[in-house]
Nucleic acid binder design. Structure first.
Lengths: 333, 333
DNA sequence: CGGAGAATTGTTAGCGTTCACAGTTGGGTG
DNA sequence: CACCCAACTGTGAACGCTAACAATTCTCCG
């Protein structure tokens, strides 16, 4: 049978409350009592029951992190950093995957309201504006990434500016026919729209005519889909001077296709990505990309979350994370 | 203020217990009462308090998954699958990272004992035998991978046989000087030892003399460390006929180094990995590897865990997951 | 139409913790 | 030496839920 505060109290010859005081440390406890209690805890191998504590306190010490798909390197790196930072601050992290299924969002919200999590960090993909109805009964929510949501706090990178800068960087190496991979037709993700916008802004600045045949659609941002999209594109189009992929994952799929076709990177076509996932460094050739500090994203998200826990009032808080273009072999002349 | 069972009960004109019965569905409730209760729940926007339920039931519906480093593709894929399978079975997953820090293991165990998680799936790396002291006061534990632990249940892939088969497969393409990347000196991980053993078994079968200069040590199994290890190796050794990397991550680092040095894969050297991570398919060239069903690992782990929850008694249960060699371009002649 | 038995619902209590408040001790003062 | 103020410790209740048991209602048959 597991020891409880009561057992510890009895053994230490004090009241349960004193044991609680020793643990929580807000009310002062005399040195000798503290010592006896601590010893009793060790002897009985006492571990507090977090369910009970959670019930009593109304807080669980757990936050939820919801990502589209943990298996993608980008999500995995975000998850890694969130878990790390959270751990440092004493939080546990519950992970949920939303897939592309809005249904999951609802379940998630309901779970979030079940008092098992004190806050929620959500990286939406499909439902840019839908499911996240930040009501009073919801725990604090922080959104990650390109989201049109205006209600919840969020952490983001300026995709428009980054895509613009990357396009300019590609142009600076003399590339003119710059294609982008990852645009979407119909209802597309906010990120796709913003990155396309930045790309086009750069073209306009450069005085290069927009050419819609250089927009390669790819709804899902995975190596598989990117490879498929690029393959069919190359079947009916000439090789562009440069290929700006909206994620590194897609770029890796693209590199694979180009290699198989004997198209040399960067000699025939420059390739760039977005996200700076770890594998980009070891891609063949190593991948030029838009890099940003994922640890910073994690810590900003946690900061916003804890701030919001302390103060539920106030308008939307936003944290912007800087980015920079990292040039590697895939665009180097 | 959040609605409670009491509020729902009052509104529906029944007792709290009836509300509970409606939710849990074990005790029969008449259709009309059920309807009234359900309507009251909707009207009051009732969400059960899982902390309270957890306290009362002694179970939380949460399992913990502990991995060395979420950012590595292998861990990420495992995590993805565990979360998926767990979700299907109604579990939530709390993720912990152990790094290579035994200290984390302890914290983890203690957390696991705090009644916030009902079970623990642990992928150890350093502490093959140490910290995991499966005592009576611990929740059920399932270990993942190559572990010498004899006390806890586990799910594993036969590394020795897989490494042997891979080595034989490489030899079948005429390679004789087969190097392995990822051996470790001193206190090494069980996986390193087992895979080395399988490799050597194959050599013995083939009548190829063991050559220690073909063992390329690499303590940490990341692309970075693998690239570094291989680079310094190539500085002082001739290029082998084949390079069997103990993980795909290392293989990807190795491919990058080989490419930079102008060593052609597979013409000059065949490269193989282990784990079949998604990126291996899109490596340049695509990576031959030892593949196994990660979803199966996840579901077996969950099965063992739930079985153990139902029956704490009984000896160690073990689930073996099949593997197969997947040949791709990196070894194809 | 009475009553046994099944079906459904209500009552009580407690899971382990901590909060509000009450009680106790100690040491310093006048 | 009585008294008072801190500083510390104890008491009781409650967080929201559900298990065990008790009580009630309904159904059906003799």
């Amino acid at each position: 049978m597991r020891a409880t505060v009561k057992d510890v109290a009895r053994r230490a010859g004090v009241s349960p409350k004193t044991v609680s005081n020793v643990m929580n440390g807000v009310v002062p406890v005399s040195g000798s009592t503290r010592l006896r209690v601590e010893q009793a805890m060790v002897e009985l191998d006492y571990v507090p029951n977090l369910s009970a504590r959670g019930l009593r306190n109304g807080r669980s010490g757990v936050i939820a992190l919801a990502l589209p798909d943990l298996a993608t390197p980008y999500s995995a790196e975000i998850a890694h950093n969130v878990v790390e930072v959270a751990h440092e601050q004493g939080w546990s992290v519950q992970i949920e995957e939303t897939g592309s299924d809005p249904q999951r969002e609802y379940e998630l919200m309901s779970r979030a309201r079940s008092n098992l999590v004190d806050g929620l960090i959500l990286n939406p993909v499909v439902l840019d504006e839908s499911a996240v109805k930040v009501g009073v009964s919801l725990p604090p929510v922080v959104l990650l990434g390109e989201v049109s949501q205006k209600l919840a706090d969020r952490v983001w990178v300026d995709s428009v500016a980054a895509a613009r800068d990357m396009t300019l960087a590609l142009a600076r190496t003399g590339r003119r026919r710059i294609a982008v991979l990852g645009t979407a037709e119909g209802r597309s993700s906010a990120a796709a729209i913003l990155r396309t916008r930045g790309y086009q802004a750069a073209l306009d600045e450069l005085g290069i005519d927009r050419d819609d045949s250089l927009l390669i659609p790819c709804e899902k941002w995975t190596p598989q889909t990117a490879a498929a999209a690029l393959t069919s594109y190359l079947d009916s189009h000439p090789v562009p001077d440069a290929l700006f992929c909206f994620t590194d994952s897609m770029a890796i799929g693209a590199l694979s296709v180009l290699w198989k076709r004997g198209i040399s990177v960067p000699a025939d076509v420059a390739v760039a990505g977005f996200d700076d996932i770890a594998d980009g460094q070891y891609a063949v050739p190593s991948l030029t990309t838009v890099s940003f500090d994922k640890r910073q994203i994690a810590s900003e998200a946690l900061r916003l979350l804890t701030e919001r826990m302390a103060d539920r009032a106030g308008g939307q808080r936003v944290a912007t994370v800087d980015y920079r273009i990292v040039e590697r072999d895939s665009t180097r002349l």
